[in-house]
Design a binder for these strands. Structure first.
Length: 870
RNA sequence: GGAAGUUUAGCUCAGUUGGUAGAGCCCCUGCCUUACAAGCAGGUUGUCGCAGGUUCGAGUCCUACAACUUCCACCA
């Protein structure tokens, strides 16, 4: 093995895995494979650009699970894919066109789509390259794209079915309109932000000349669409005015004053202008009173011909001009500063306009109920649980989903209209004639579907729906979905609903929510802040393993997470440690003969490390079952670094360097076995380096091995070695405190008080003590030589005074020990003297504490005696 | 206007059913000891946001408060 792992080998290793077919489910090779099915669908990244560090976290988490389950013997399927991201991609392409001085109209629908597919080839491909560099072990042979042929079929099938059932319908309703993207948006696609604006108090004169009524509004420019003014029926100020006509300012129109419960007496002036075409509430009020909405805006956000001289002005310019004009006419009562919450397009951040428009909708009522039910029953488990509350809240307040978009890039709505009789047909394949009148002149709906429509089918469309495939049968519902919190509405909830509706089942059993990745200052990474990190840059510099490990270590489930290059530098030390341990094992092997592992020859240290290994594996399994990735990783870390590298490697050195070939061969065999188990343990998180090391020793591939397994657990030996480790630490401490040079070899004395068993144990550890703390010999107490005593878990021991000297240092040390022991005794005593504790605490605990107290007490006694002797 | 999360060592963060506070980095001391100086052996560092409560016992459960963050919401 070289001095360091060469990260350039990662590509070669990935190719070997790929060529070996390791990313495919075992049932692809052996239909009778009996392992449990474990499946995941990858949240498909948008083809708008390249992956960022959040994607790296998401996919590392999934890959960690996939590789772990695979090594557990599961039949693992992980399906990768990308999303066409209708509106987001279209915005990007239009931007690109703009640089060439072109618009999408210049290209025409067909030309534009050609561009879009070329875009997909370029960026979709780049995403796959990035995922591979990260080491993702997904099954590329099943790779899906939301607009590929199979997924198109699924979309058509689902659309038709829901249309036939009346759940998808077309109608005129108030929707969110983005004047920049020129399309309708769903409620979920609107982001609300507080904006500083004004509250305009406008005078609406009574038609009969009896003064005026003051109406307060935040959107004066929509007054051209006013159909009436409303007041609360209980509001006595207006009782005698209701029914009168008002002159609509800046127009020659007259509108009535009506009353409606919706109006709040105490807000504003108590009088509200009702503009049904441009406000969801007004729409309701208008409908109740039989008014027809009047649309006053064009689709680009400019005012239309209804607005007279303001026609053609952008809505904001119109507002300015209108207010000036009204002021001049004395129709502005006052203007107050006001903060309004305004909706913005989630893609281009233009402020959206509520507008009445003819769109396609999906009725979500029953599906939402089903979605709530499966979560409440625990069939779909959301981790961490708090996120489930967000999910429930949204489903409880769900409204019909606006699914049509006035875009070109996306699934075109399979609705066809007869040019003759206007009949609407929804078909999976283009009809040739009208089903009603037989006319052959038909045209297809111009709109495409919301990009999240195809995403909602992802859980089963990726497994072959609408065909009844083996994959669907085996892998649906999927096991775990790993995703981010911000798409819980867009995606997670809708997948649950559509899977329930179409497949009559849940899409996944568990949802693991990743936190948001922030930069080292805690700021959210985003393009606008320019603090995003390209995973490829990190991988090129430090290797994929370093990135993967750093993303998962210390990252609590669902918590936001700070990422920085500094953290990578800290965390990659662990990878270096694993590599160096491998070098040690290699060295030992090269210096020993062949020996197979003989369970009967295990010494206490071997038994100790196997017990530790066993515990670690059990803990890891528990954490992995709970999807507690952070805990699993930290458990791996402490076993490898603390138990194996710091302790076992040092404890086994006398044996792997032994002059006795049998002893040496055995020791190396154990060392090798434990280390190989470490490689297996770590492979799911740092697959490249572990594979590289594994192949240095083996002809097989690590990815195909089963997970780490201990050959046993040995309670007694574990305790014994724990005592020896404690003794070593104590000797180091004493040597240091007495200023005994590390290089000086000294004797260790077993005092008479020490039990026979413990004395034997210390004697048996002579080699280990020699190697670790430079103890020349271990012997029983010799009364003729003065000794410096100390106490540890294993009993009372001593060093010869003439070998270590320095009375002052010794006194200092003993006093320090005594203080420590006494403070613990005080704590225990206060507890044991409390009758409540003795009576009510578990008996085992009370007993344990009593024993501990006794032990400390006797230790304190002997330390005091030693102090006196000084 | 609702709701959620966070608050633990100088910094970044772990802390599973309540049972004597942990890691990494930083800092100090001693070591280039034949796996590893991206290291080893030691050491220092905390009224676990504030105030109550439940309990023999609370970082952990309950209540109120504060600060920060986020999500949801049609009051013109």
């Amino acid at each position: 093995m070289d001095k360091n792992f060469d990260i350039n080998n990662e590509k070669k290793i990935y190719k070997a895995w790929l060529d070996g077919g390791y990313f495919k489910p075992r049932t692809d090779f052996d239909a009778n494979y009996s392992g449990e099915n474990f499946s995941m669908i990858m949240p498909p990244p948008n083809i708008t650009g390249q992956l960022h560090i959040g994607h790296a976290l998401n996919n590392t988490t999934q890959d960690f699970l996939a590789r772990y389950r695979r090594m557990q013997g599961d039949n693992v399927l992980w399906v990768p894919g990308t999303d066409h991201a209708s509106i987001a991609t279209e915005v990007k392409i239009i931007d690109a066109l703009k640089k060439e001085g072109l618009t999408k109209q210049d290209l025409g629908r067909e030309g534009f789509l050609k561009r879009a597919w070329a875009w997909n080839d370029k960026f979709g491909g780049r995403i796959y390259t990035q995922l591979q560099a990260l080491g993702t072990s997904c099954d590329w042979s099943r790779c899906a794209f939301t607009m590929d042929e199979k997924r198109q079929k699924a979309v058509l099938k689902v659309f038709k079915r829901l249309y036939d059932e009346g759940l998808i319908y077309r109608g005129s309703k108030i929707i969110n309109w983005c004047p920049c993207c020129k399309t309708a948006l769903s409620d979920a696609e609107v982001e609300h932000e507080d904006e500083k604006s004004s509250f305009w108090y406008i005078r609406y004169p009574y038609a009969d000349g009896s003064g005026y009524l003051v109406v307060a509004t935040t959107r004066p420019e929509t007054l051209f669409g006013d159909v009436c003014v409303a007041v609360n029926p209980e509001d006595k100020r207006f009782t005698d005015k209701v029914g009168k006509m008002l002159k609509l300012p800046a127009t020659d129109k007259e509108i009535p004053l009506i009353s409606d419960e919706y109006v709040e007496k105490d807000f504003g002036t108590g009088a509200v202008k009702i503009t049904p075409a441009h406000d969801p509430n007004d729409y309701e009020v208008g409908a109740r009173h039989g008014f027809t909405p009047i649309c006053v805006m064009n689709l680009d956000g400019s005012m239309n011909e209804i607005c007279g001289k303001y026609a053609g002005l952008d809505r904001m310019d119109c507002r300015k001009r209108l207010i000036e004009d009204l002021k001049a006419e004395g129709l502005i009562e006052k203007i107050e500063p006001y903060t309004v919450s305004k909706g913005h397009c989630y893609r281009c951040h233009t402020s959206v306009e509520p507008m009445v428009s003819k769109q396609w909708f999906m009725n979500m009522d029953d599906m939402a109920k089903q979605g709530l039910k499966v979560e409440e029953e625990g069939k779909v488990k959301i981790i961490p649980n708090r996120v489930a509350k967000i999910y429930r809240n949204w489903l409880n307040n769900i409204r019909d989903w606006c699914i049509s978009r006035q875009l070109w890039w996306g699934h075109r709505i399979p609705a066809y209209y007869c040019d003759e009789c206007g009949n609407t047909m929804v078909e999976e394949s283009t009809p040739t004639k009208c089903s009603k009148c037989g006319n052959t002149h038909l045209h297809q709906d111009e709109d495409v579907l919301d990009t999240w429509f195809s995403s909602a089918l992802w859980a089963f469309s990726t497994l072959g729906y609408p065909e009844k495939t083996k994959d669907l049968e085996r892998f649906f519902p999927t096991s775990v979905l790993v995703t981010a919190q911000d798409i819980i509405f867009f995606w997670v909830a809708r997948m649950v609903m559509l899977s329930g509706k179409i497949e009559g089942n849940i899409p996944f059993k568990k949802v693991l929510i990743n936190g948001i990745v922030r930069d080292d200052e805690g700021k959210k990474m985003s393009k606008s802040s320019n603090n995003g990190v390209d995973p490829i840059e990190i991988i090129d510099k430090y290797g994929a393993d370093s990135l993967r490990f750093s993303l998962l270590v210390g990252n609590g489930t669902g918590n936001d997470f700070r990422f920085s290059e500094t953290k990578i530098l800290e965390d990659r030390k662990f990878i270096n440690k694993v590599w160096n341990a491998g070098k040690f094992v290699e060295l030992c092997i090269s210096q020993s003969g062949e020996a197979s592992l003989d369970k009967n020859k295990l010494n206490i240290y071997d038994k100790w490390i196997y017990t530790k290994l066993n515990t670690a594996i059990v803990d890891i399994a528990k954490s992995m079952n709970n999807l507690d990735v952070c805990q699993a990783v930290s458990r791996m870390y402490s076993f490898v670094w603390d138990d194996f590298c710091d302790n076992y490697v040092e404890l086994c050195k006398p044996y792997v360097y032994s002059q006795n070939p049998d002893e040496r061969n055995h020791a190396v065999a154990v060392l090798k076995d434990v280390y190989f188990n470490i490689l297996k343990m770590l492979h799911p998180i740092i697959p490249f380096i572990t594979e590289e090391i594994w192949q240095n020793f083996n002809k097989t591939m690590l990815i195909g091995e089963s997970y780490a397994k201990s050959i046993g657990k040995f309670k007694k030996e574990e305790e014994q070695v724990q005592k020896i480790i404690g003794l070593i630490a104590k000797i180091r401490e004493v040597r240091l405190s007495l200023n005994v040079p590390v290089s000086k070899r000294i004797s260790l004395v077993i005092c008479k008080q020490t039990s026979e068993d413990d004395a034997q144990l210390v004697l048996s550890a002579a080699d280990v003590l020699s190697k670790n703390v430079n103890i020349e010999k271990v012997e029983a107490q010799n009364d003729k030589r003065e000794a410096v005593k100390f106490v540890c878990e294993i009993g009372e021991l001593a060093l010869y005074k003439d070998e270590v000297v320095d009375t002052e240092k010794e006194r200092e040390r003993l006093n320090k020990d005594l203080a420590k022991i006494e403070s613990e005794m005080t704590l225990l005593a206060s507890r044991l003297n409390n009758p409540n504790f003795v009576e009510r605490a578990p008996k085992e605990l009370v007993k344990k504490e009593k024993e501990r107290y006794e032990f400390l007490n006797s230790s304190a006694q002997s330390i005091k005696k030693n102090l006196n002797n000084l």
